[in-house]
Lab assay of single mutants.
Amino acid sequence: MAAAAAAGAGPEMVRGQVFDVGPRYTNLSYIGEGAYGMVCSAYDNVNKVRVAIKKISPFEHQTYCQRTLREIKILLRFRHENIIGINDIIRAPTIEQMKDVYIVQDLMETDLYKLLKTQHLSNDHICYFLYQILRGLKYIHSANVLHRDLKPSNLLLNTTCDLKICDFGLARVADPDHDHTGFLTEYVATRWYRAPEIMLNSKGYTKSIDIWSVGCILAEMLSNRPIFPGKHYLDQLNHILGILGSPSQEDLNCIINLKARNYLLSLPHKNKVPWNRLFPNADSKALDLLDKMLTFNPHKRIEVEQALAHPYLEQYYDPSDEPIAEAPFKFDMELDDLPKEKLKELIFEETARFQPGYRS
């Protein structure tokens, strides 16, 4: 834990890192770190609560700039109880001085990944967590956004079992017609939660990839272990087919990539493993919904509104309290091709509203 900075004593240090967030945020305490930044909790002297502050230093890398800009653009436009918001952003007053960006968010005690390492969940908890994931996802999908990296560590939890989806750095506007060349190379989302079509096709992607990830998360809540822990690309596919069985001819016809289709045709026939054999203690309604989410063919996979209306979630289902976005989200430009200098300018502009004396 960093010592509390005395008023006016300059930035606090946390594990050798400068955290320049005073005077409003003090009493910093280390939480963890990701690929390009550290997260601390801090005391907000204005709202009198502890908050989470993520320090991001992305400006050396085009990919990190892209992810940072995506996350900020999306989260500043989203407003939903099951999606983490941005409360404040701290950065230098000029673009030349801006080396880091500090993002202030609600402090959540833990995440689903940490929880599943230590606790076996009751059916009631599984049901409530799944409902909140789908409630947040309904809003995301209504904005025409794909999260693309749903996994237990991106689901934040607090002691009252509130759940918030975080990390929109890989999110995209849904565009089933656009052929994202190089899709697989830039697709760094965790393999275990990846839909089979991501490994088999490169053309376009749809909201059904997020539903697949939610199915993987439900299976993990039922058993405290990942359902498809593939060691590499082909191993991942083999794990999936080992449980779902061989795809039907109709399902194979959806695979545009001939090499991928021929690979699947070359494999020995596998039978589907019954879900109640894998999860003998699970609620039968939970397994019915799991089956509809972990469907090989993305066109037959359940959609988020149908999933919310499934009998497993009937005690929570309330369409009048499951809000959607006001308007579909649009990125003005494809960020993939922009140089990091341009992305830095866009991050600077996007964060201006939090600067003292800002006038829109």
Rank of each mutant, 00 (worst) to 15 (best):
Y43H: 11
I217P: 03
G242M: 11
N47C: 12
K114C: 11
L116R: 04
V51N: 12
S266W: 03
P356I: 08
L264E: 02
V273F: 02
R277K: 13
R261E: 08
I90T: 02
E303S: 07
F279S: 09
A7K: 01
E81A: 07
L184P: 04
C65H: 13
H61A: 08
Q236M: 10
D318P: 03
R135F: 04
Y263C: 02
N271V: 12
V273P: 00
P298V: 09
A195T: 04
G37H: 10
H147W: 07
A327F: 00
L290D: 07
S202V: 13
T63V: 09
D291H: 05
L200Q: 14
W275E: 07
P274M: 09
R70Q: 04
G136L: 05
Y312Q: 06
D162R: 03
K54L: 01
Y128P: 02
I83N: 13
R67H: 09
I133E: 01
H180T: 05
L313A: 01
G230S: 12
R77P: 07
K164D: 06
S202F: 07
N276R: 02
Y358K: 12
Q62N: 12
E81G: 13
R15V: 08
H125P: 01
S41P: 00
H269V: 06
K203G: 11
I103W: 06
N201G: 04
V18N: 03
P298K: 01
D332T: 05
V145T: 11
I140L: 11
Q119L: 13
P247F: 02
L267E: 05
Q97F: 12
Y263Q: 04
M38F: 12
T26Q: 04
V145L: 12
L69W: 04
A260V: 12
N27W: 00
L28V: 12
E71M: 08
A5R: 13
I227C: 08
D251T: 04
F279M: 08
A52L: 02
G182I: 12
L258F: 04
L346G: 11
I86D: 11
A92P: 02
E250C: 11
T63K: 14
T160F: 08
P298D: 03
K344P: 08
Q306K: 06
D332Y: 15
R301A: 03
K259A: 12
L218Y: 08
L278D: 05
F183R: 06
L137A: 07
A174M: 10
L308M: 14
R172L: 14
V188D: 14
L156M: 13
I83R: 00
K117L: 09
R91H: 13
L146H: 06
D332Q: 05
A42Q: 11
G182K: 06
G204P: 07
A4S: 12
L69V: 14
S142Q: 05
Q66A: 10
K342S: 01
A309H: 01
C254A: 10
S29M: 05
V49L: 14
L28M: 14
I103R: 06
H147S: 09
P323F: 01
M333H: 05
L112C: 07
F183G: 06
L76N: 09
G182C: 12
H299R: 08
R148Q: 13
C40H: 10
V173L: 12
N224D: 05
G34M: 03
R91C: 08
D149L: 03
K151T: 13
Y205W: 04
K272D: 01
D337L: 10
H125S: 03
R77H: 02
L241Y: 09
Q355C: 09
V101K: 08
D291M: 04
F329R: 04
K300T: 05
E345M: 06
C166S: 15
K73E: 11
V49R: 10
M221R: 10
Q119E: 12
I90P: 11
R148P: 08
S266T: 01
V51P: 13
I165M: 05
P268W: 01
E12C: 11
I95E: 09
D235Q: 08
D210T: 06
A171I: 10
D162V: 13
D111L: 00
V101T: 08
R301K: 11
E314D: 13
H125T: 02
Q249K: 15
V188R: 07
K207C: 13
E314F: 01
L200K: 08
L157S: 04
P339K: 13
S248W: 08
H61C: 04
V18C: 08
C40K: 12
R148V: 05
S320N: 01
D167W: 01
L244G: 06
L157Q: 14
D283I: 08
L184C: 09
L112G: 05
K99W: 01
E250H: 02
L218D: 05
E197I: 08
R353W: 08
S122V: 01
A6I: 14
F331T: 08
N262F: 03
H299L: 15
E12Q: 12
Y187I: 02
A4F: 00
N87C: 07
N224F: 10
S284I: 08
Y317I: 07
S122T: 05
T190G: 10
L150A: 01
N45Q: 14
G357L: 11
E349W: 00
K151A: 02
I324C: 01
K138A: 10
D321Y: 14
G22N: 12
I74D: 05
P247A: 00
L308R: 03
R135N: 03
L170P: 02
P11I: 04
D20T: 11
Y30W: 03
I84G: 00
S142N: 02
V104K: 01
L137C: 05
A3V: 13
S142I: 05
I72L: 13
L107Y: 06
A2W: 00
L163I: 09
A352T: 13
D106F: 05
A9F: 00
L28E: 00
R79C: 13
T63Y: 10
H147G: 07
I227P: 02
A282V: 07
K259C: 03
L264P: 11
S202W: 11
Q97Y: 12
S202Q: 10
L69K: 01
L156F: 09
R91W: 06
I198K: 08
I211E: 05
M38P: 15
G230K: 01
K48A: 14
A189T: 13
E96K: 11
N123R: 06
E350G: 00
R77A: 07
D111G: 00
K117A: 06
E250R: 07
E197W: 05
V104G: 11
K300P: 02
E349H: 03
F183C: 11
K138Q: 10
L343V: 10
Q132N: 07
T110R: 02
L335V: 03
L69R: 13
N224K: 13
C254P: 01
A3R: 13
T68F: 15
R191I: 04
V101G: 11
V273R: 00
N297A: 04
L163E: 02
N47Q: 14
A5Q: 11
E109W: 04
L184H: 09
I72A: 09
V51K: 12
I86G: 00
A309L: 02
V39G: 00
A282L: 01
H310T: 02
P11F: 03
Y113V: 03
A352K: 07
P226K: 01
S122I: 12
G204D: 08
Q62K: 15
P323T: 12
A92G: 00
L278K: 11
P226F: 02
L265I: 01
G85A: 12
D235N: 13
N276V: 10
D111W: 01
G245T: 01
H232N: 11
Y64K: 15
E250L: 04
H178P: 12
H299K: 10
F78V: 13
W275Y: 08
R194D: 05
L222K: 01
E334L: 08
I56Q: 15
D124N: 14
G85Q: 12
L130T: 06
T160Y: 02
S142C: 04
R15K: 15
Y131C: 00
H147P: 07
Y358H: 12
G242Q: 10
N253M: 11
L155V: 03
Q249S: 03
V273N: 01
R67W: 13
D288T: 12
W192G: 10
N238V: 12
D177C: 09
Q306I: 03
G16A: 09
K55S: 13
T181A: 00
F279L: 15
Y64W: 12
K73C: 07
N257V: 07
V188E: 05
A195E: 09
L222C: 06
E96I: 03
K151H: 03
K151G: 02
C40P: 15
E250T: 08
M13A: 10
G204E: 11
I243T: 06
A92W: 00
V51W: 09
Q97H: 15
H180V: 06
E305K: 12
A6W: 10
